[in-house]
Simulated assay, not measured.
Amino acid sequence: MAERRRPDKGRGTSVRKGSTLRVEVDGPLMHAVLDGPETDNTLGHGTLRDLLALYESLRDRPEIRVVTLRGTGRSFCSGTEPVALPESPGGGLDGAVAAARLANQVCNAVSGTDAITLVRVQGAVTGFGLALMIACDLRLADDDAVFRLPELFVGRPPCWGGAVGRLLAEIGAPRTRELILLGERVEASTAERYGLVNRIGTRQQNDVLEALWTRRLLRAHPAGSRVAKARLRAYGQRGRPGHPAGSDAEILSAFSALAQYRETHGDPSRLPG
């Protein structure tokens, strides 16, 4: 992770080889950028670990009040790199569970920070990319954004990033069932209607709106903003079933069930349709 600072502002950190996360700090404002356009910002474990470290570090950086997140290139985030899935119910679960746990920890850190988080998305917002977006407080989508949770159609359980619980809280059970069970593409206008995003617009319109919202967020009283976010987070979690990110036991159960199905019926990603 490379963190850049403007003169007399910010704080430097080490750079992790293979990470595609860039960070810039300007006083109370932090910009986090997923910078892997050649892969449509498909995130590797190094970048996930850097995202986790970045958002967890905000606990000790109360001077950071607003964090923006975006991806370079044509897509915000196309998910994570593939992980090896177990071939039998009892074996090979460690790597898959560890990957799912890391994704969950990242999204928990994003949603749990006291700073206000503003995400800007475009192009593909797929799998973990959608989970990462829904963990943010405010969400702007360019009008070319397309949202999808394809896990059930590539032979994976839908447990990445704690998306299920957050989607249930944000858009309700019927819409969440559509996203997960059908795995269909959701266009930007539909996403706005569902409540997945706050606003949609052209890239130029969202440039203006992002700058406007950032200025307004920074004008609010710092203590008041933190209290407001804490209350919103508490109310949002009241109706959320289970742990927002899913426990290790739930993750393990999901992968074990998938392995059991594969042993009995074959690889679901190769089924017709």
Rank of each mutant, 00 (worst) to 15 (best):
L21D: 00
V23Y: 00
H31F: 07
L209F: 12
C136Q: 05
P86E: 05
P86I: 02
L217W: 05
G91W: 01
G123S: 09
C77L: 03
L179W: 04
A135F: 03
V146S: 10
T202H: 05
L179R: 08
Q204S: 12
R231P: 01
G236V: 07
L118P: 11
E170T: 13
V164T: 13
H265M: 14
A169C: 11
H31R: 14
E170G: 10
P89R: 12
P174R: 10
R148K: 14
E38P: 00
G46H: 12
V208M: 12
A234F: 06
V208E: 12
I251G: 01
R215K: 10
S88A: 14
A131F: 03
A259N: 03
L54T: 09
Y235F: 10
V154H: 06
F153P: 07
T113K: 02
Q105V: 04
P62Q: 11
E3L: 06
N206G: 03
A100C: 08
E63S: 14
S14A: 14
V23D: 00
L34Y: 02
S247T: 15
Q205L: 13
V97Q: 00
T176I: 09
K17H: 12
A99K: 06
L102T: 12
R199W: 09
T202S: 15
R215Q: 15
R156E: 15
N41Q: 06
S111C: 12
Q105C: 08
E187C: 15
V25T: 15
A100F: 01
P222M: 12
V97T: 04
D60E: 13
R65S: 11
L252R: 12
F128E: 02
L138W: 02
E151Q: 13
A135S: 14
A169L: 08
D60A: 08
F153K: 13
V97W: 00
E3S: 08
A96D: 11
R238E: 14
G71L: 06
E192G: 09
L258E: 05
N108W: 07
R59F: 12
C107A: 14
G36F: 00
R238M: 14
T126I: 11
G165M: 09
T214G: 07
A131L: 04
R166Y: 11
F255G: 03
G266K: 02
L212P: 01
L51F: 02
L196H: 06
R16V: 13
E38L: 08
L51V: 03
L69F: 05
T176E: 08
I134G: 00
R216C: 15
G183Y: 01
L196V: 09
V97S: 00
A99E: 13
L29H: 09
V227Y: 08
A211P: 02
D50V: 00
G10N: 09
V125R: 00
H221D: 15
V164Q: 09
P86N: 10
M1Y: 05
R219Y: 09
T117M: 04
V33M: 13
R49Y: 01
M30I: 03
A103D: 15
T126N: 05
L167D: 05
D207Y: 07
R199C: 07
A100H: 04
L140C: 06
D267F: 03
N206I: 10
R5Y: 02
Y261Q: 11
D40T: 04
D26V: 06
P222Q: 11
N41S: 09
L138I: 13
D142Q: 13
T190P: 00
